[in-house]
């Protein structure tokens, strides 16, 4: 198993001159090396080696229970909240080992933000939802500063026009798609470098999904994005790199076009064509 994934890792490096132009020049923003995750006795991830390029959208695909969400949650140590979860191997963010005991997990999560599957705004006003992060991290010196951060974040999330007249109304009163964009605004308000998205559109209708996908494409300019998705079309639409997980293994990863048009592995091909899943 280990051999297998190492081989993929090498072959990925060899194909990096293909369309991912940024990738070739820049160092990867995040890098997982031999990542193993255990829930108690059960191993959920086996020796995953994956680079996440800066200012790219990396899509993690695979059937349910394949470990893609687990890997995503390792990237900002959200798995720490699960008592029985244990992670081995090395995950780096700009060459810093994020599992180093010296790393403050709160700082890490400010740098690696997260958007969840179900929109989960705080039961507070729209303004408070976005302002909460900057406030606890002391990103604003005064009220005007804070307001500017909130407005900028909402604008980047493409929500400002819709909510500018009701900033002090509850965030939970928005529609599902608006709520999810509010959560994205909340995540970018703390100026993260990486944004993790765990099936951000699975609870949204197609129109809201299209809006969020458009947004993800725009955000790529400023942020590195990792997105877990069940929709192959979505992965194809929004991502530059795709990684296919199956049964806790990273089966294959590379440029999205390459994965979808010309998968190297039989299992990837079967999954993409709908034969397994």
């Amino acid at each position: 198993m280990k051999m297998d994934s190492n081989k993929i890792y090498k072959s990925e490096a060899a194909t990096s001159h293909l369309p991912g132009m940024l990738h070739e020049a820049a160092k990867p923003k995040m890098r997982g090396e031999n990542v193993n995750v255990f829930y108690g006795e059960k191993q959920a991830l086996f020796d995953v080696n994956l680079d996440i390029g800066a200012n790219e959208v990396t899509a993690l695909i695979g059937p349910s229970g394949c470990g893609k969400s687990t890997f995503l949650r390792c990237l900002n140590r959200m798995n720490d909240t699960i008592d029985i979860c244990r992670v081995t191997g090395k995950i780096t963010l700009d060459d810093d080992d994020i599992y180093d005991p010296k790393i403050d997990v709160v700082e890490l999560r400010a740098r690696v933000g997260m958007v969840f599957q179900k929109p989960n705004p705080f039961p507070k006003s729209i303004f408070e939802n976005v302002a909460y992060g900057p406030r606890i991290h002391g990103l604003s010196r005064n009220k005007t500063d804070l307001e500017e951060i909130v407005v900028t974040s909402l604008r980047r999330a493409g929500l400002f026009q819709e909510v500018k007249d009701r900033m002090h109304q509850p965030g939970t009163g928005l529609s599902g798609g608006q709520q999810q964009r509010l959560c994205i605004a909340r995540a970018i308000a703390v100026s993260p470098e990486v944004i993790l998205m765990d099936e951000p559109c699975s609870a949204l209708d197609p129109i809201a999904t299209a809006t969020v996908e458009e947004l993800i494409d725009e955000l790529r300019e400023n942020y590195t994005i990792v997105i877990v998705t069940h929709s192959m079309q979505q992965a194809a639409r929004v991502s530059q790199k795709t990684a296919f997980f199956h049964l806790g293994n990273l089966v294959e990863h590379g440029d999205t076009d390459e994965i979808f048009q010309n998968p190297r592995e039989e299992r990837t091909k079967n999954y993409i064509t709908g034969r397994i899943g």
């Binding site: 909240t81 999560r109 997260m114 989960n120 909460y132 606890i136 909340r186 308000a189």
Partner: peptide, 23 residues
């Protein structure tokens, strides 16, 4: 209290104590 609220707070970089006391 739904766990999603805790996750949301942790996700924007609140410490566990902050998540509990603020949300």
């Amino acid at each position: 209290v739904p766990p999603s609220i805790r996750e949301a707070a942790l996700g924007v970089g609140a410490s566990k104590t902050q998540a509990v006391f603020h949300h």
